[in-house]
Amino acid sequence: MILVTGATGTVGRLVLEALPTGQAVRVLAREPAGLTVPHPRVEVVRGGYGDETALLDALRGVRRALLVTSCVAGDDDALFIRAALAAGVEQVVKLSAGAVSDPLADDLITRWQRASEEALVSSGIAWTLLRPRSFMSNTLSWASSIQAEGLVRALYGRSANACVDPRDIADVAVRALTEDGHAGRAYTLTGPEPLTAFDQTQQLGRILGRPLRLEELTPDQARAALLRRHPEAVVEALLSSALRQRAGAKALVGHTVRELTGREPRSFRDWAGDHAGAFAPGTPGRVPGAP
C-alpha cells in the first residue's frame, strides 16, 4: 500500500494520476471533494496531520508514503513521522525544496524545510528527499494580468531559475514510491535550462500568439503584493529567496530527471504549450501552491 498526501495540490495530484492503476493507493485529504481519483484502487481517508485517528487510519498497512507539507514552521512533519513510526511504514518520500542544500540559504522557509528533512532522516524510517527548483506552474499566477493586460509583473525579472515541470517531479516521486534503490537519496530536480521571468514571458507570448510585456516590480511593490496573500514572516523569506536567485543561486541545471526517468526533463515551452489555455482571455486564473 502507498499513501499519498497533498493529493489536491500541484505535485500530489500528479503523483496520484501517475501511479500504476494496479497499485493499491490510499489518500489522506482534508477536503476529499477536491480530489481527482484516476482509478478504482484508491481509498480516501478524510483528515489532516493534526487528526491522530485519521492519520493512523491512513497509515495502517502502508509500506511507502509521499509526504507533502505546506504549513511553514508548523509541526506537520513531526506529527506524520511519529505516526509513520507507530504504523511501521518502511519508507517516506518527502517533497522538500532545492534551497535546503544551499548553505547560504537561511530564510524561514528553508530553515523549516531543512529541519523537516532532518527530522525524517534521523527518525529511523528509510527516506527519499525530493528537492525541486521553482515549479514552472508558478507562472499561472500571471494568468489574470496576461489575460487582461498582456502583462507580467515580476521581481528581478532578469534573474534565472532552473525551474522544473511538476510532472517531472511527480514522475521521480512515483519511481521512488514504486521502485527499490531510492532510500537514503536526496534528489535535486531541475528543468533543462535556467530561465528568467523575461524569458518565460517571451516564450508565453510566442505560444499565445500575442505580444506580452514584462514589468519589473520593486522590492517594496513585491512585498506589498505578497503581503496580500502571506504572513509577513513568509513574505520576508520569499524576498530573501528572490535575492539569492538574483545572485545566481538557483540557475544550476542538474541531470537527475534524465538519470531517473531515462528522458530529458520537460522544457518550459513544453509546459506552457500544454497549459496555454490557462492564459487565454476569458479563462479564470489559478494561483498554485509551491513548496
Rank of each mutant, 00 (worst) to 15 (best):
L55F: 12
L56S: 14
L56Q: 13
L56H: 14
D57C: 09
D57M: 11
A58S: 03
L59F: 01
L59D: 00
L59P: 01
R60L: 13
G61M: 01
G61N: 00
V62R: 00
V62T: 01
R63L: 06
R63W: 06
R63K: 07
R63I: 04
R64P: 10
R64K: 12
A65Y: 04
A65R: 03
L67C: 02
L67E: 02
L67H: 01
V68F: 02
V68W: 02
T69L: 02
T69I: 13
A73W: 08
G74S: 03
D75E: 10
D75C: 03
L79E: 10
F80L: 06
F80W: 09
I81N: 09
I81P: 08
R82H: 15
R82E: 15
A83C: 06
A83V: 04
A83W: 06
A83Y: 05
A84L: 06
A84C: 10
L85S: 13
A86V: 06
A86E: 15
A87M: 03
A87K: 03
G88I: 00
G88H: 00
V89A: 01
E90R: 08
E90N: 02
Q91F: 07
V93F: 00
K94N: 06
S96F: 07
A97R: 05
A99M: 11
A99G: 12
S101R: 11
D102P: 10
D102I: 12
P103K: 04
L104I: 07
A105Q: 09
D106G: 11
D107S: 12
D107P: 12
L108F: 14
I109H: 14
I109P: 09
T110Y: 04
R111F: 07
R111S: 07
R111G: 10
R111D: 08
W112R: 08
W112T: 15
W112P: 08
W112Q: 11
W112A: 15
W112V: 10
Q113V: 10
Q113K: 13
